[in-house]
Simulated scan of single mutants.
Amino acid sequence: MAKIIKLSETITVGNETLHELELDFNSLRGLDLLEAEKEARALGDESVMLTLSMTYHAAVAAKISVLSYDDVINLKGDDFTKVTNAVFAFLMGKG
């Protein structure tokens, strides 16, 4: 399942200008989730339940999109919220 997020403003990643962001949940593997957990922990996230952590959500989003973690966390607030909410919904089985 892929989720398309319409961005409120265009962003440039490399040489590509994006008006929307595809989150490819079908490409996600357990290893990706474990790597995202390690990244979140290395960034200082001490959440007991990572499924509630926006740091973890951003790390997961970076795994399933063309964006890096830094790109994800630098999205406008409403776009960041759309992306992290989509990841949260997926992790909770609602995606």
Rank of each mutant, 00 (worst) to 15 (best):
K6N: 14
K6W: 04
K6T: 12
L7E: 02
L7D: 05
S8V: 11
S8N: 15
S8F: 05
S8T: 15
E9Y: 04
T10G: 09
I11K: 00
T12Y: 00
T12I: 12
V13E: 00
N15W: 02
N15T: 11
N15Q: 10
T17I: 12
H19D: 14
H19Q: 11
L21H: 02
L21A: 08
L21G: 03
L21I: 13
E22R: 14
E22W: 03
E22T: 14
L23N: 05
F25P: 04
F25T: 06
R29W: 03
R29D: 07
G30W: 07
E35P: 01
A36K: 02
A36F: 01
E37D: 07
E37T: 15
K38P: 00
E39S: 12
E39W: 08
A40S: 09
A40G: 00
R41M: 06
R41W: 03
A42S: 14
L43N: 06
G44E: 10
D45P: 03
D45A: 06
E46D: 13
S47D: 07
S47R: 00
V48D: 05
M49Y: 12
L50H: 00
T51A: 13
S53C: 12
M54H: 05
M54K: 10
H57N: 08
A58P: 02
A58Q: 04
A59D: 03
V60K: 00
A61T: 07
A62S: 15
A62W: 00
A62T: 04
A62K: 03
A62L: 07
K63P: 06
K63E: 07
I64H: 00
S65K: 04
S65I: 09
V66Q: 07
L67T: 05
S68M: 10
S68W: 02
Y69C: 10
D70Y: 10
D70V: 14
D71S: 14
D71P: 06
V72C: 05
V72G: 00
N74H: 14
N74L: 09
L75Q: 03
G77L: 12
D78F: 10
D78V: 13
F80K: 01
F80H: 05
T81K: 13
T81W: 11
K82P: 08
V83E: 02
V83R: 01
T84V: 15
N85F: 09
N85L: 15
A86G: 07
A86P: 05
F88C: 13
L91P: 03
L91M: 15
L91W: 07
M92Q: 14
M92H: 14
